[in-house]
Lab assay of single mutants.
Amino acid sequence: KKKYVIKVYFEDTGKEVEIEAESKEEALEAAKRLAEELGLKIKKVEIYP
């Protein structure tokens, strides 16, 4: 089964997080949740198959 690796870059902090997920949708949801939890804004998202 294919996994996606999503790199999320946050504004202000210069922080980046990698998330593995089964689908792009799932990964983007996780990225949004994470940003909310951390109180950060997402600057850029890169998706690698």
Rank of each mutant, 00 (worst) to 15 (best):
35 A>W: 05
9 Y>D: 01
24 K>C: 12
7 K>A: 03
27 A>V: 10
28 L>A: 07
40 L>V: 04
8 V>N: 00
13 T>G: 12
4 Y>V: 14
1 K>Y: 13
29 E>N: 13
46 E>T: 09
10 F>H: 00
22 E>K: 04
25 E>A: 10
44 K>G: 04
37 E>T: 14
8 V>M: 07
18 E>F: 06
27 A>P: 01
20 E>T: 10
10 F>V: 01
3 K>S: 13
32 K>N: 12
17 V>H: 10
15 K>F: 10
8 V>S: 00
35 A>P: 01
29 E>W: 15
28 L>K: 07
26 E>Y: 15
46 E>L: 09
5 V>E: 01
29 E>H: 13
12 D>Y: 14
28 L>G: 05
6 I>W: 14
1 K>W: 10
12 D>E: 08
48 Y>G: 09
25 E>H: 10
2 K>H: 12
30 A>F: 14
2 K>M: 13
10 F>P: 00
17 V>Y: 09
35 A>V: 04
9 Y>R: 05
21 A>R: 08
31 A>G: 05
19 I>T: 03
24 K>P: 05
47 I>H: 09
48 Y>C: 11
2 K>I: 09
44 K>F: 08
39 G>Y: 02
25 E>Q: 05
19 I>V: 06
14 G>K: 10
10 F>Y: 03
18 E>H: 08
22 E>G: 08
48 Y>P: 04
13 T>E: 10
28 L>R: 06
36 E>Y: 15
10 F>N: 00
9 Y>T: 06
38 L>A: 12
15 K>M: 05
13 T>Y: 12
11 E>Q: 15
21 A>E: 06
39 G>D: 03
28 L>F: 08
23 S>H: 04
42 I>C: 02
5 V>A: 09
39 G>S: 07
4 Y>Q: 02
32 K>F: 15
19 I>H: 02
13 T>W: 08
42 I>R: 00
40 L>S: 03
42 I>P: 01
26 E>R: 10
3 K>Q: 07
44 K>E: 06
27 A>D: 00
7 K>L: 04
30 A>C: 05
3 K>N: 04
43 K>W: 15
31 A>E: 00
8 V>P: 00
14 G>V: 14
49 P>H: 15
18 E>T: 07
29 E>F: 15
33 R>A: 03
45 V>A: 03
30 A>N: 10
29 E>K: 13
35 A>G: 07
19 I>K: 01
38 L>R: 08
4 Y>D: 00
1 K>D: 07
5 V>K: 14
19 I>W: 12
43 K>L: 09
38 L>P: 01
11 E>F: 15
17 V>D: 02
24 K>A: 13
14 G>I: 13
25 E>M: 08
21 A>C: 04
20 E>P: 07
48 Y>N: 11
17 V>G: 04
33 R>V: 06
12 D>A: 10
32 K>Q: 10
27 A>K: 00
45 V>K: 01
13 T>M: 09
17 V>P: 02
22 E>Y: 12
32 K>T: 10
31 A>P: 01
15 K>T: 12
34 L>M: 13
30 A>M: 12
12 D>G: 12
7 K>P: 00
14 G>Y: 12
31 A>I: 05
41 K>V: 09
22 E>C: 12
47 I>R: 02
42 I>L: 08
31 A>K: 00
4 Y>A: 01
16 E>D: 14
24 K>R: 07
12 D>T: 12
35 A>I: 03
26 E>D: 08
38 L>C: 04
12 D>I: 14
